[in-house]
């Protein structure tokens, strides 16, 4: 049995809502069948009154062993580093976060906000929000680059806006079943088993990408083509398993015709959502994508694209996802 304490700081509850969509295991399975002991959660905790606050303080003091501390939401440092823009149980949340991170064996940041600051930390960052161990791509964040939990691990980042329930539940199960050693982290502290692949891996539009055939409009235009060329899709530059482990067991944004926004990467939302950047591919000279797939450069990309267009078969120019 592993004990879990889940807090929400500068959060929208999106990761909790995503977590509650989980299946195999679902939330009830995790607790009833799997023996995960959720000490407290803003939506699921049962302890009331002094019992609840005692859980927090017992975790801090070490009287109650805290195996996993999960944080959802940004660490709000404003105004002027006081943390008074996010009060929880009479104290700035940053004080609880500091103490509980130090008390836990493993600290897990769920969602972009806790990982690297997310949307609240985008320019001009009115609440002085940051992530637990990163601020955007920069190491450090709230706890500092060298911080390690009691078990010697840095903060385990499970990004996404929100994180997929499986990315949460399977990691919790792995930690709970003594498989912490199998969790290899990448340089952004993300579990590689999920984040080595690209969002494009498994995308139903990948054949259109192969032959450089673009979707021409939203709606019925998405019955064909790839969203990378015109609609700002970040699938080839984003690491996630969104098209391997489907959302709500049904689909993914790119399958449904929505460009990937790159929400598992620290820069999300990209370009700070400046004028003319939303759902629009940024281009050089009006034609060449400013960003090309990871590992490619513009010269090889253009050579490949020219050859691919010549090779494009007729079906790649027609609707595929038809009624």
């Amino acid at each position: 049995m592993s004990s879990v304490l889940w807090f929400q700081a500068g959060a929208c509850s999106g990761n909790t809502m995503s977590f509650l969509n989980a299946d195999e295991p679902n939330v009830v399975d995790l607790i009833v069948d799997f023996g995960l002991e959720i000490l407290w959660h803003p939506s699921l905790g049962m302890e009331l009154g002094d019992n609840a606050k005692k859980i927090f303080t017992d975790c801090v003091s070490g009287e109650k062993p805290l195996d996993i501390f999960v944080l959802e939401g940004t660490v709000i440092q404003g105004p002027d580093g006081s943390g008074r823009m996010d009060m929880f149980a009479d104290r700035p949340m940053i004080e609880w976060v500091t103490e509980l991170c130090d008390a836990a064996s493993i600290v897990v940041a769920i969602g972009d906000c806790a990982c690297w600051g997310g949307i609240p930390a985008m320019e001009p960052n009115p609440s002085d929000s940051t992530g637990l161990q990163f601020h955007k791509r920069e190491r450090g964040g709230f706890l500092g680059p060298d911080w390690r939990s009691k078990s010697g691990l840095p903060v385990v980042n499970i990004p996404g806006c929100p994180a997929h329930p499986d990315w949460i539940t399977q990691i919790l199960v792995a930690l709970a079943t003594g498989r912490a050693g199998d969790i290899a982290l990448d340089d952004l502290h993300r579990p590689q088993t999920f984040f080595k692949t690209f969002t494009q891996t498994g995308c139903t539009r990948v054949q259109f990408f192969e032959y450089k055939q673009s979707t021409t409009s939203f709606g019925e235009g998405t019955r064909t083509g790839c969203l990378f060329y015109e609609f700002g899709c970040r699938g080839p530059m984003t690491h996630s398993p969104c098209n391997r482990i489907l959302w709500n067991r049904q689909s993914s944004k790119t399958r449904a015709g929505m460009p990937c926004l790159g929400c598992t990467e620290p820069e999300f939302p990209f370009f700070d959502l400046a004028k003319d950047t939303v759902f629009k591919t940024q281009k050089i000279s009006g034609t060449i994508p400013k960003e090309v797939p990871e590992g490619a450069d513009h010269i090889t990309y253009m050579a490949h694209a020219a050859a691919a267009r010549i090779a494009a078969p007729q079906w790649s120019k027609e609707d595929m996802f038809v009624v």
Binding site: C161, W247, N248, G257, M258
Partner: peptide, 12 residues
């Protein structure tokens, strides 16, 4: 999710 790709947080 069938229409919007995912829930929560689609922008479809």
């Amino acid at each position: 999710a069938i229409f919007g790709g995912q829930w929560p947080h689609s922008s479809f």
